[in-house]
């Protein structure tokens, strides 16, 4: 059906055009973005949890480490981190592998303006298939996002842990729980309701940061929108068209608006669920509404 696009009528032309191999890759890239969000969110939360615990630690060096992590990452523009970390991680890993795999390499790694490691230490290896390069790029992106958003999450969770009323912990300790038990059974279950507004905000920022994948060299939706929307001449494609990048980016804009709106609705529900039975203004409103009904 799509063999001779030049003779199709408008509707069929669009059906064929929107199902070309490149367009399927474009749709796949939306999956990449969602995958990034799905992987980064829990990893960042875990890093944030670790950071918050470290910042609360009673051992001064550990507390400095946690607080330093939060302060450094939050104090510098994220985009600089995104551009910086990817090269830094890449060079760091290659340097470690270089030390490990080529101990008898004599030339210096940094030669003026070049960063040279032995061929066996290259990441990924120059002979590796294309998909390994793509997975490696994506993994670097996830690590970078997780480090940056982990610091934000650490800050939110640190605040949430401090917001749980002291009396709750004191009661737990009065019942004979150890410090760790009180932390596990009382503090952690109760802190989520205080953390949720901050975490929701963070999730929204994470969604809105995801197009920065493009800067990290991953073939994401921004890459494909620029590629597919650009003017196509009949010489190179069966589907020539003018400059449609505006429409492709309009589509991305709508995609992101839908994603943030959906998140808002879901997070609103979660918040209502978590507030139930809590000794907070929100919980009180719910209790009264139920009593009146």
């Amino acid at each position: 059906m799509c063999d001779d696009p030049a003779n199709l009528d408008t509707l069929l032309w669009f059906v064929c055009y929107l199902t070309t191999g490149k367009h399927l890759a474009f749709y796949g890239a939306f999956g990449t973005v969602l995958l990034l969000l799905a992987v980064t969110a829990p990893v960042a939360l875990l890093l944030g949890f670790g950071g918050a615990i470290a910042a609360r630690s009673r051992l001064a060096p550990v507390a400095w480490l946690g607080k330093g992590y939060i302060a450094v990452v939050r104090g510098v523009p994220d985009i600089a981190f995104f551009l910086f970390f990817v090269i830094a991680l890449d060079q760091g890993l290659e340097w470690l592998r270089h030390q490990w795999l080529c101990p008898d390499w004599t030339e210096p790694v940094r030669q003026g303006q070049n960063f040279l490691v032995c061929p066996e230490a290259k990441l990924p290896l120059a002979t590796a298939p294309q998909w390994i390069h793509e997975v490696y790029g994506f993994a670097l992106a996830v690590v970078t996002f997780a480090i940056v958003f982990g610091a934000f999450a650490a800050n939110v969770l640190y605040g949430a842990m401090a917001a749980v009323p002291r009396a709750q912990i004191e009661t737990a300790e009065a019942y004979g729980m150890t410090h760790a038990q009180a932390f596990r059974r009382v503090l952690v279950p109760q802190m989520w309701v205080y953390a949720l507004p901050g975490l929701s905000n963070l999730w929204m920022i994470l969604i809105k940061a995801s197009p920065l994948l493009f800067l990290l060299g991953v073939r994401d939706i921004v890459y494909w929108a620029r590629e597919l929307g650009a003017t196509q001449t009949p010489r190179f494609t069966d589907y020539p068209h003018g400059d449609w990048r505006m429409w492709y980016f309009l589509f991305l804009l709508v995609f992101y608006l839908a994603l943030t709106r959906l998140s808002e609705i879901v997070l609103g529900r979660v918040m209502r669920r978590l507030t139930r039975g809590q000794a907070m203004a929100g919980g009180e409103v719910q209790r009264r509404a139920e009593a009146a009904a």
Partner: peptide
């Protein structure tokens, strides 16, 4: 519209719109 979408995409869209 402006708070729900990434500034990065807004820039791209606006640039191509102006073009």
């Amino acid at each position: 519209v402006f708070r729900g979408s990434p500034l990065f995409i807004q820039f791209f869209f606006a640039y191509f719109l102006f073009l």
